[in-house]
């Protein structure tokens, strides 16, 4: 049924490469997303705790972390991809394929998510943190039992936004050799003037984005007990 519909409306689109490209995009988004979640949470927590008036307030350290975050966030992703080529070659061993896209995806998105984490933690009521300290809780208790659970809906919403940004990044990475739907749209679709291929790749990206948004919203809503 799908195959018939495709051959009728999108004559140049073959299902196998489309599925493979979708799988590559999902793979890159998921792998980078997992790393971004962990690194962003770490960096965001460090940003939050060292910011003025917080538990580990430290102006020079906060300034250093903040600047690092801003620099990576400010570099346009397509330029970051090119800048990181030597690093990628050293770490991954190649600059082609889905794994070669991961370093740039992670460096591009982790600082973005870290800012969202910092923002989410800043919204946690200071009174609750004070109460935790008054009960004898230390930094570990504050981070793992107060900040993360209390900010969970915002952390999930932030991750949703980040994952959607990552889908966009994978498309750019695809254009310079990473594979995935961006690669399909650009090389097969644009350069060979097969508009139906570009259209199919776009529809696949849209579908992925909608599903991520839907699942993210649902989870955030479920976690929100306010």
């Amino acid at each position: 049924m799908l195959a018939e519909w495709i051959s009728a409306w999108l004559p140049n689109v073959r299902l196998a490469p489309l599925l493979k490209a979708t799988e590559d995009t999902l793979y890159m988004t998921a792998m980078a997303g997992a790393a971004v979640f962990v690194l962003g949470l770490l960096l965001g927590t460090a940003l939050h705790l060292t910011s003025p008036g917080r538990l580990l307030a430290n102006r020079p350290l906060y300034w250093a972390l903040s600047t690092l975050t801003n620099v990576f966030r400010a570099i346009p992703f397509i330029i970051l991809l090119v800048l990181l080529i030597p690093f990628t070659r050293a770490v991954v061993g190649t600059i082609l394929g889905v794994n070669a896209a991961l370093p740039a995806l992670i460096f591009g998105a982790a600082p973005f998510y870290a800012r969202l984490v910092e923002l989410a933690f800043r919204e946690v009521d200071r009174g609750v943190i004070e109460a935790t300290r008054a009960m004898g809780g230390g930094i570990g208790t504050v981070v793992f039992r107060v900040l993360i659970p209390e900010a969970a809906p915002a952390l999930v919403s932030g991750l949703t936004v980040t994952l959607i940004a990552l889908v966009g990044y994978t498309a750019m990475a695809g254009a310079i050799g990473a594979g995935g739907l961006g690669h399909l749209a650009y090389l097969e679709g644009f350069q060979r003037s097969r508009r139906d291929v570009t259209l199919a790749a776009t529809l696949a990206v849209l579908l992925i984005v909608f599903v991520i948004q839907f699942l993210g919203d649902r989870l955030a809503r479920r976690l929100d007990k306010r």
Binding site: D125, G127, V128, M135, G136, A152, L223, K225
Partner: peptide, 16 residues
């Protein structure tokens, strides 16, 4: 602090 309880004007409960 374990032996000193404290309550607050705005309760300061964890809403989660």
């Amino acid at each position: 602090r374990l032996k000193i309880g404290m309550i607050f004007q705005h309760f300061n409960l964890l809403w989660s």
